[in-house]
Simulated assay, not measured.
Amino acid sequence: MVLGALAALGLSVLDVPTFERLMMVAAMCLIAGWLGHHLNLSCDDQWDGIALRK
């Protein structure tokens, strides 16, 4: 989250237009969601003993 906030601040400092900043934040949210999903699966593997990776 800190890296995302710094990236958003950096885009503001670089005078990137608002729409492009919004699209970058949306892309960062998708990446964070993907990463969270994979981290959740890795925790489930540890407790269930079942490999859920595809």
Rank of each mutant, 00 (worst) to 15 (best):
L35C: 04
I50L: 12
W34R: 08
M28N: 08
E20R: 06
I31H: 04
R21M: 11
G33W: 07
K54R: 12
I50Y: 09
G33R: 03
D45F: 05
G49F: 12
G4L: 02
G10H: 01
V25H: 04
D15C: 02
I50F: 09
R53L: 12
Q46I: 14
V25W: 03
G4S: 12
D44I: 15
A7I: 12
L6R: 07
R21L: 03
H38E: 05
L41D: 14
S12L: 09
A32K: 05
M24H: 05
D15H: 14
C29Q: 07
K54T: 11
E20K: 03
L30N: 03
G49S: 10
R21P: 00
S42C: 04
D44C: 13
T18K: 08
L22H: 00
G36E: 13
F19L: 13
G4M: 11
V2K: 09
D44L: 15
M28I: 05
L9Y: 11
S42Q: 02
L41A: 06
V16N: 04
L6E: 12
L14V: 02
G10A: 11
D45G: 04
S42D: 03
N40E: 09
G4T: 10
W34Y: 10
R53G: 01
L52K: 15
L52Y: 14
W47S: 06
C43T: 11
A7C: 03
A32W: 10
W47E: 15
